[in-house]
């Protein structure tokens, strides 16, 4: 059972959209942006509000790659594995990040909830391949060593705040 605050926050979001099926995806986007993930318990609540079934809300939320039912870290690192990045060696960067943070193909988020490492199909920064994105900021021309330095930098940033 979620804390009451989740529902009041959801109400705030729901009130910004017409209570229609077409609002579902924008609402889930906003929920994810608020919590860094989609608390699955909120879906029935959203579904009821916009007049669709729970199963439908769940089927949509689970379909899209971007939505996650698992809480994500403070820093979401999306390593681009688009064609241009792939041929310019994006995988060694991904491997370094994973080994640096003790993550794997199955485990995406560190236990301290600081880092989530994922791959993404293309960031549109192909001229600066290989690229990765930390939250909404693109880092160009990555190498495994730069990845190590980036993790260190982000850890320091987190320690400061």
């Amino acid at each position: 059972m979620l804390d009451e605050s989740f529902y009041s926050k959801a109400d705030e979001i729901l009130n910004r959209y017409p209570a229609q099926e077409r609002s579902l995806i924008p609402i889930i986007h906003e929920i994810q942006e608020t919590y860094n993930y989609v608390p699955v318990e909120l879906l029935p609540y959203v579904a009821k509000h916009i007049g669709i079934t729970e199963t439908k809300a769940y089927s949509v939320a689970s379909f899209y790659e971007r939505f996650s039912f698992e809480p994500k870290g403070k820093f979401i690192i999306r390593v681009c594995d688009g064609t241009a990045c792939h041929v310019r060696q994006s995988l060694p960067v991904l491997e370094r990040l994973r080994s640096e943070l003790g993550l794997s193909e199955k485990k995406h988020t560190t236990d301290d909830m600081l880092f989530t490492v994922e791959t993404v199909s293309c960031l549109g920064a192909c001229s600066l391949a290989p690229a990765l994105m930390v939250n909404e900021h693109v880092h160009p021309a990555m190498t495994p060593d730069k990845a190590t330095a980036l993790v260190k930098e982000l850890r320091e940033e987190a320690a400061k705040s």
């Binding site: 688009g82 293309c122 549109g124």
Partner: peptide
């Protein structure tokens, strides 16, 4: 929805 990896014209 420019999804092709390796394309950023529309972007």
């Amino acid at each position: 929805d420019e999804g092709d990896p390796g394309a950023f014209m529309d972007c």
